[in-house]
């Protein structure tokens, strides 16, 4: 039982890591690939104030 649990855990963690690698930070700007600029902006309507 313990061994199986350990195996299950390892399996799950590998899953997490794989997703992390696939989804994770892709370096930008090298090899002529485009640089990514991220803008934190107001959503919804374009303009408003409090």
């Amino acid at each position: 039982m313990k061994r199986k649990l350990a195996l299950l855990l390892i399996f799950l963690m590998t899953g997490v890591l794989i997703t992390a690698c696939v989804e994770g930070d892709k370096p930008a700007g090298k090899d002529g690939s485009p640089v990514k600029l991220v803008i934190a902006a107001r959503g919804g309507l374009p303009c408003g104030c409090d």
Binding site: A28, P34, V38, A40, A41, R42, G44, G48, D50
Partner: peptide, 27 residues
């Protein structure tokens, strides 16, 4: 936000970059 998206295209192609806009509620 729509305002930024409407104009970013020209800049992107000119400067070889991608512009991502994260639209959030003010607070």
């Amino acid at each position: 936000m729509d305002a930024i998206n409407s104009v970013k295209g020209a800049f992107e192609s000119e400067n070889n970059c991608i512009i991502e806009v994260l639209g959030l509620e003010a607070s």
